[in-house]
Design a protein around this nucleic acid. Sequence first.
DNA 1: CTGTTAGCGCATTCAT
DNA 2: ATGAATGCGCTAACAG
Lengths: 338, 338
Amino acid sequence: MTTIRDVARHAHVAPMTVSRVLNSPESVSDETRTRVEAAITELSYIPNMVGQALRHKLTGAIGLVVSDITNPFAIQQVTGVSRAARERGFTVIFAQTESDPEEEMRQLRSMIERRVDGIILSPVRNTPDSVDFVAAARRNIVVLGYPMPNNDVDVVRCDSRAASRQATEHLIRLGHRRIAMLSGDPLIVTARERAEGYEDAIRGAGLQPDVRYGAFTVASGLEMASAILDAGTRPTALVTASNFIALGAAQAARQAGLSIPADLSVTTFDNSSTDVVLDPFFTGVIQPVFQMSEAATMLLIDRIQHRHVGPGRDMVMPTTFEIHGSTAPPPNVLQRAQ
Amino acid sequence: MTTIRDVARHAHVAPMTVSRVLNSPESVSDETRTRVEAAITELSYIPNMVGQALRHKLTGAIGLVVSDITNPFAIQQVTGVSRAARERGFTVIFAQTESDPEEEMRQLRSMIERRVDGIILSPVRNTPDSVDFVAAARRNIVVLGYPMPNNDVDVVRCDSRAASRQATEHLIRLGHRRIAMLSGDPLIVTARERAEGYEDAIRGAGLQPDVRYGAFTVASGLEMASAILDAGTRPTALVTASNFIALGAAQAARQAGLSIPADLSVTTFDNSSTDVVLDPFFTGVIQPVFQMSEAATMLLIDRIQHRHVGPGRDMVMPTTFEIHGSTAPPPNVLQRAQ
DNA sequence: CTGTTAGCGCATTCAT
DNA sequence: ATGAATGCGCTAACAG
């Protein structure tokens, strides 16, 4: 590949002059600049960022580590971070952990070996190890999605617990009394938080909680919902902790011959836009993933460029609750009301 | 950050010895090796790949450029390439072009500035410019998804035209006579290829072709299908050129009060796994995206490691045709058969 | 088995 | 306004 020296030779100047033409053109005389620019075009010179990075101790790259890119939620994170980073001149190095904490550590290490300027981590768990590791290597990091109670670190997240309570209260207000919660892997914070929010609402209304833990997958949603719908007295409504679980629950309902929302109400978390074809479309909590990703990117770049130093910031973004076609009063509420 | 020299000082050896401990431990005596390893742990030294890259003229990174990551199809590409690359010790630098040819060029340039060892490109168009640009910079490149008739380059793709013909013939065999094609942006090769495959089948059966071009989106599918279903004599079957278009068409059918497959048959390309909740599930062509991505990664790494030199290879992978619930004989076929 | 020299591409610093 | 020297972190090639 052509280097700055090749260009310099070709334009009869010193390498330094070429560097200046690229980085501070105003400090070079018009005449030499045009000569150098001609040489650059002629040789189709493309700067080598590896050399720059070694020199500047900055790579202009940020690492993005997510659990599972098959989840539309994660995809929005990737999209949001990519865009925001690009707008600010950063490149994204991307890795997924397939929800394996050890793989997460390997990927973080790999990012640090590449000397990314900072890392955005959507972690598998909220144990402090990952963040500690990155902090020990003195790399900037922002956590996306979860609270990290044991780390002093920048976090962008939502109040999952409150959002889940809101979804549950919606069902209670509609008249439901037997409401079950289908959550994800209890090792994952949001699974617990969303279960807790549900319990807050259920207890507040003097009802009986019924929390099932599984995984954040369609298969798990199907399984949990099937089990619960086949039981003697089945609930009239389900609060689910994710879009995948909700999809599985919808499948289970169909298999059980129940129609949504006439026989069973279902709420979800994070409807994805492609779900738009679903009939009915899910009522549920929407996290502003896109804004969250952008915010995380900005917090990170603030750190990288020393615009912010000091203790970790905790950005809690507001969720919205969208009412669509998957929730309705329970089948017998009219009779009961009379 | 600690460097190889810090470790060297700490272990009372030369930097070179530390390098050897990391890269060819067997060439170092047990005694000094353990001493160096102790120092590495003590100082929690993490190698700097920027230095390595500058030295080796290899970054261990491959660039992946896709059009639109919101498409499940692209996600499978990202997942497949990530995994395959990781298994072989490569990192993935990812970028999306949002289907903009100029952004594609910018991203390719950015990848070359970063001196990725190679690029996997799922291009916006099949004009030769992108590949020419990368080739001029003497970087390895593999094209994923499209034929590139004007480039001598490695390509991994499917025979879209044949696959589309197969889908259309399935409908013809079921007895359909009025079959329309909803395709994507005609500037995109696969949109044209799939339309051509449809025409092959239609003409072969002596029927009247009806091709509509739009975009590879749900909205466009909805729009195209609505227009066609509202017309006087509407078709009894639709061949669509993508999953998104099929989803839009399904939505249009619902809005028009038509049920699939009783009133209208629909075929798709590239069912995604999350569509599993759809009722009915789409009949259609499946490309082995995952294997394609893996193959592309292997072809690329073969080039990077000089295991393959010479002319471009064209890998055409087989598609499968899956029959599910979205296709059936046309409403009036029984009467007609009598 | 271990150390020294030198250079990958670039830009900061200090001269001119 | 331009150039020369130097070093970022690492390792190939050679020396001992």
